[in-house]
Design a protein around this nucleic acid. Sequence first.
DNA 1: GGCGGCTTCTTGAAATTTGAACAAGCGACG
DNA 2: CGTCGCTTGTTCAAATTTCAAGAAGCCGCC
Lengths: 169, 169
Amino acid sequence: MNNAPDSAAAPRWLTAEEQHVWRAYLHATTLLEDHLDRQLQRDAGMPHVYYGLLVGLAEAPRRRLRMTELAMQAKITRSRLSHAIARLEKNGWVRREDCPADKRGQFAVLTDEGVEVLRRTAPGHVAAVRQALFDRLSPEQQKALGEIMEIVAEGLQPKEAGADLPWLR
Amino acid sequence: MNNAPDSAAAPRWLTAEEQHVWRAYLHATTLLEDHLDRQLQRDAGMPHVYYGLLVGLAEAPRRRLRMTELAMQAKITRSRLSHAIARLEKNGWVRREDCPADKRGQFAVLTDEGVEVLRRTAPGHVAAVRQALFDRLSPEQQKALGEIMEIVAEGLQPKEAGADLPWLR
DNA sequence: GGCGGCTTCTTGAAATTTGAACAAGCGACG
DNA sequence: CGTCGCTTGTTCAAATTTCAAGAAGCCGCC
């Protein structure tokens, strides 16, 4: 029954200010994610994550990415990606293609229809992001937000090789 | 086929910096949410949202809240809450109680077992939040984050009465 | 009283996500 | 060559979430 680090020791609770910040964070992030999810579901017929998959493919070299790469880029499991691509395939927005170099591999390829969906819906999505976030923040706040988020992400990054194998150092 | 506001006009794309901030935001928030979800699933046997429900109840006057209130506090739909409470009830952590004043109403009540689960798992959760977020940010950054998140939340708040009925002003 | 509109909460089915298990291919190494 | 360990992607079942109804009570008002 081992919890997180030193959970048995006297816990350092959050201070009042920290608690305030944390609640604001949870509040805002869930509201924003819900907002964008509904916006995209309404205007593009897919959840935010799926939209992110299409964007990822659109930016990739030949509008294609190996499943694993795409999964990492979107920070979702391969399993989840399999299901998602199956759904997007049914929509005609993505197509699967075998990888010649590795017979296990599959490419997810953005179809022309997929490109078209993005072309049609991206402006509305950008507008939503802008209205919810950037239009409300000062340049300094935008900069601060970027820095903060980078720090947080860095601390949670899927560990690099050997990072958790200290006996290898 | 009406998208978001003025999506037909020449879209104002995100600048390079904005895009950078936005990606950092998405990256960090999904990593953090996944991290906490896994942490709580592992140590408390429930997802982050469910944990939030227990916390909400724990802080309420008699460890109880009407379903609608709890749903609003957690920012989820009543439907979702119904299912969630059913699950937590099966765990023995929450119990339903009729509302005497309104026969339609139900209270969700945190049981002693529920309290115990929180007592046992809260320290680990706080530690995780601290390690992922507060331990990495300067006091100024924490303050900035709080302000930013408040602004964002304010802009997405479920609209108050008449907010979208300008002809009423 | 009782009707109409609203609120409260639940339900059931479909969609999505999770987690474990699996088939198949890769690749190094004896 | 073989086979062991690892990677790739999928699949299944269970859990969770969404969405569209729907049952029941409340409330104001005639």
